[in-house]
Design a protein around this nucleic acid. Sequence first.
DNA 1: CTAGGGTTAG
Length: 463
Amino acid sequence: MNPARPITTFRLASLLRLQKDPKLALKLFKNPNPNPKTPLKPIPYSLLSYDLIITKLGRAKMFKEMQEILAQLKEEIRFTSKEALFCDIINFYGRAHLPENALKVFDEVPSFRVQRTIKSYNSLLNVFLMCKDFDKMRELFVGIEKFGKADACTYNLLIRGFCTSGRIDDACKVFDEMKKRGVSPNVITFGNLIYGLCLNLRLTEAFKLKTDMVKVYRVYPNAYIYASLIKRLCENGELNLAFRLKEEMIRNKIEMDSAIYSTLISGLCKVGRKEEALIVWEDMKVSGCKPDTVTYNVMINLFCKDKDFEAAYRLLDEMVEKGCKPDVISYNVILRELFNEGKWGEANDLFEDMPRRGCSPDVVSYRILFDGLCNGMQFKEAALILDEMIFKGFAPRSASICKFVDSLCEGKNEDLLWSVFNSLEKGKIIDVDLWRMAVALALKDDKISSSFELVDSLIDVVN
DNA sequence: CTAGGGTTAG
């Protein structure tokens, strides 16, 4: 294709679709004609191109850039966007835990000449569910009539909110109201209620609801519902019942999926029945159910508990081969066990290799590393990691820091102690316990001047 | 992706 040829509307959209890198996609969108000598013509944007670039930027959390394009879209009068685009945007802000921005987008939808329905309203409800702001959910629900009639999805979101916050009885009230308003509960409704009952150890009621949903409502349980029940049974140590449910699924021709296998394997593993776990793992493969990242993580955990790191690494490779990406949990499981075994050097290597393997360490990774290095008396390395994690905005557990500071005091490692407090100060994470330690430390210190310095800097932090 | 399950850590 001739690169100098001015780009067409259609080609811009397909190039945008193919461009995986959001930054490059944005560059392409802003400057679609690659040849600078081509005289500037009106750029052929289509609604599809806007959709593509906005969702790419939103997915990448590049919100400033996304808003820029949105402002441009608002001026386009050749076409009107679909409500679904705004549902996406609201969802992106929710995932980034920016509920205020989501609310703002929701408010601005009419200025794009787009009518808001219950769909974008539900997206907004979901944002506050993701942010666990249940009061705000309730508040939103009160003003619902402006946008339409609450549908099954609306009620399911509310029920979910109550279930995850342990307020099962409130969830049941919403369920009753839903029925009263003539909205039929669906399999997701029952899934949420059963999930909540299992979470709150009300297993008898969960099983009763599983029966009633069929008898009374003619809605049939699916794998989601079985997964909640099986998990709870495993945690109660009732593995035989859990396997009876698995048999029931097969009998009722409900397709077994990876979640069911993950739950069963993990359940067996937790009570030390490793051989049976391995049998289920083989059974899964034979039955043609593909393991996903979670299933692999369960298996990696199993091998790690067995101190079989070779097998764990093999599974990591197998995941990559099968196109199933190891995630941060895959690595955290291995890291934790490497430290438990005192292999802190190997753990450090794996940790440093994570970004190269396309997985950024999270707060758990850093905590594992920090605690592991402290336990292994690798204080210098621990101080480095502490500074790095604080720089990235991850907070170590308070107990870990106290223990660390304690060890440094005992070892009279003043230089390191000083740098640790400096790091903590940068992250503004000095709490009362650390204060007490610092003051005690300052009072015991022979070098009066440096103690004063320390206390002064701590006072700065508070002010 | 307007809504749901299962894995690590604490």
